[in-house]
Design a protein around this nucleic acid. Structure first.
Length: 561
RNA sequence: CGGGGCGUAGCUUAGCCUGGUAGAGCGCUACGUUCGGGACGUAGAGGUCGUCAGUUCGAAUCUGACCGCCCCGACCA
């Protein structure tokens, strides 16, 4: 591709509204433009990256027997009413009416359509198993689009769905997908972890997420280096390291003005691990007191699993439930439901005394108050792995793929059933599997960049070679560069040919910014000594070769990347 | 949805507090010089200062409403 005839609008300065590295670089290097919050145009270079990622995904999906189809973006409400998700999914679903006032929505995922299709077309156990997939635009009215192409309201997704006779079949299809996903992310050159995850609104019996380590990520995972345990922090299990508990006897201690755990532990000069954090929340059935050890964070999803939907209590509600303002609330002597984190089964703690400016020291759970116990705390770095005991690491990540065992959650309401060998009618057992190509693009940049710009993995770079002619007006140079462009292209190497009439500095800066794996420079040395330079973007290593050697050396260098 | 910030030329922005007809750098056009790490000169084009209403003799500037964008949180594939 000749740059002089292409749309590659690079910017000298960072766009004012971009913060994440991948956001800044995709905009500056001319890969994308933002049309509205969470809505993007892919320019030619961005489009080429997406094509490459998608081609890899398609190969691997076809490789496990996937059959590509395309489902509609506009969907009738009835399907979603049948599965129940018309009501359970909130503002995230774009909804509209047609000219006859019929309810429609824009597709955010396609389990319902797949179940509908299966209900119509699958009749016998002989028709199973099946893997159907599509690579198509999804629409989700995200509450908060952010970080460029990482979280958008419209995005391409590869979603696939497996149909099986029974859970054993689902397990097979699930493993096939897991392994295919590993190959996809490896081929795309992104680092990732496979972690246990929360099925969330998808429902079902189990799920994993594919997580690319990056500071720009929205999720966190807990990892055990020793035994390989890996889980989203939303459900990660771990064992707290127990402090040495002093032999306190039960007594009130004055703590004037000390409300937060930090203030109380500093005032009493004790470790936060010797305190209990008491939080009042309002559940459907009324107030609940949730307890975690002072040095831990309450994980709201875990609490929700334990008590159902809730919200933080207002000050008046805290007063009504405990008789004291937030800051001095504790579990002793209150009459509300108490749910405590597992960590608190043993020990001796300082808690709020439910009296102003007072805490209670020497509280022993089970003796001074009764509680239900559940896993409520967020796993933290340094916790012991619940499987092997080694210390856990916590890492920030970008979710680039996920796999769900759905079971019969959608096949039952949508009547996707088949006739078994023995004549029995049975529900199809489903799985669903997603990958976000744009997140692979962004994760690759987050993981591969330096101060000068992007450093693409060769497999998803828009071009392998950035051919740079230092001065297009020198005919001798132009002749050499044109010739190299033709030869490389003929040899099947993808070349971005910077044939613009720009000064060398501009071209070098842009080459670094765009991030192609190899840069081929035709400049003064070509004129004087008949030599051209090949520079590896990642390492900066330069080799000097004669023009006739170029194609061979380029292929060699690419093979080595 | 709650909190914070910001909307001035294609991009990055000054001016706003203290009202008096809008400025810079980059980019763009033309010509000349220059040509291996974001050159220089000369001459140009380009702005309903987000929108609407109000205050005022006069509003980019003050007030209100609305719209849009970013960040934190909530929510969530």
């Amino acid at each position: 591709m000749r740059w002089s005839q292409s749309l590659v609008p690079t910017l000298k300065e960072d766009p004012a509204d971009a913060e994440a590295v991948s956001h800044r670089l995709t905009v500056r290097a001319g890969y994308v433009r933002q049309l509205a919050a969470g809505i993007y145009v892919y320019l030619p270079l961005g489009q080429r990256v997406m094509h490459k990622v998608i081609a890899i995904i398609r190969e691997e999906m076809d490789g496990i027997g996937g059959q590509e189809i395309t489902m509609p973006v506009i969907l009738p409400a009835e399907l979603w009413q049948q599965s129940g998700r018309w009501d359970t999914i909130g503002g995230e679903m774009f909804r509209l009416k047609d000219r006859n006032q019929r309810d429609l929505c824009l597709g955010m995922t396609h389990e319902e359509v797949i179940a509908w299709l299966a209900a119509h077309e699958i009749r016998s156990y002989r028709d199973l198993p099946q893997i159907w997939y599509q690579i198509q635009t999804k629409e989700r009215d995200e509450a908060r689009p952010k970080s460029g192409v990482l979280r958008t309201r419209e995005f391409i997704m590869k979603d696939s769905y497996s149909l099986d006779r029974d859970p054993a079949g689902l397990e097979e299809r699930y493993i096939l997908h897991r392994d295919a996903y590993c190959r996809i992310f490896e081929r795309c050159g992104v680092r990732y972890h496979v972690v246990e995850s929360d099925p969330g609104m998808m429902g079902g019996a189990g799920s994993h997420e594919f997580m690319a380590p990056s500071d720009a990520g929205e999720d966190q995972v807990a990892l055990c280096e020793k035994c390989g345990y890996a889980a989203n922090i939303e459900l990660a299990r771990s064992r707290a390291v127990q402090p040495d508990f002093p032999a306190w006897s039960l007594e009130d201690v004055p703590t004037p003005g000390a409300r937060t755990i930090a203030e109380v532990s500093a005032f009493l000069t004790i470790s936060p691990a010797l305190t209990i954090k008491s939080l009042v929340v309002m559940a459907d059935a009324g107030p609940v007191l949730a307890l975690v050890r002072g040095d831990y964070q309450l994980h709201e999803k875990k609490l929700q699993r334990a008590i159902g939907p809730f919200r933080p209590a207002h000050v008046e509600e805290v007063l009504a439930a405990t008789g004291v303002e937030p800051g001095f609330v504790g579990p002793v002597g209150v009459s509300v439901r108490i749910v405590a984190d597992e960590t608190l089964r043993t020990g001796c703690y300082v808690v709020g005394a439910n009296k102003p400016d007072t805490h209670l020291r020497g509280v022993v759970p089970g003796q001074h108050f009764q509680a239900e116990f559940a896993d409520l705390r967020e796993a933290a770095a340094g916790d012991a792995c619940s499987t092997c005991g080694a210390p856990l690491r916590v890492e920030r990540v970008i979710e680039i793929g996920n796999i769900f065992k759905l079971g019969t959650k959608y096949s039952l309401p949508l009547r996707a059933v088949y006739l078994a060998e023995n004549g029995e009618e049975r529900p199809v057992v489903m799985g669903s599997y997603g990958i976000g190509p744009a997140r692979i693009l962004a994760a690759a940049i987050e993981q591969g960049h330096d101060a000068d710009g992007i450093v693409w993995p060769k497999t998803i770079a828009p071009f392998q070679v950035h051919l740079l002619i230092v001065n297009v007006r020198e005919e001798a140079l132009a002749a050499i560069a044109d010739q190299l462009y033709r030869e490389l292209t003929a040899a099947g190497v993808e070349v971005l040919y910077d044939d613009r009439d720009e000064r060398p500095g501009v071209k070098f800066k842009d080459a670094d910014l765009l991030g192609m794996p190899l840069r081929l420079t035709v400049g003064a040395r070509a004129r004087k000594e008949g030599l051209v330079e090949i520079r590896t973007r990642k390492t900066g290593a330069v080799v000097t070769v004669t023009p006739v050697e170029v194609v061979g050396r380029i292929q060699e260098l690419l093979a080595g990347l």
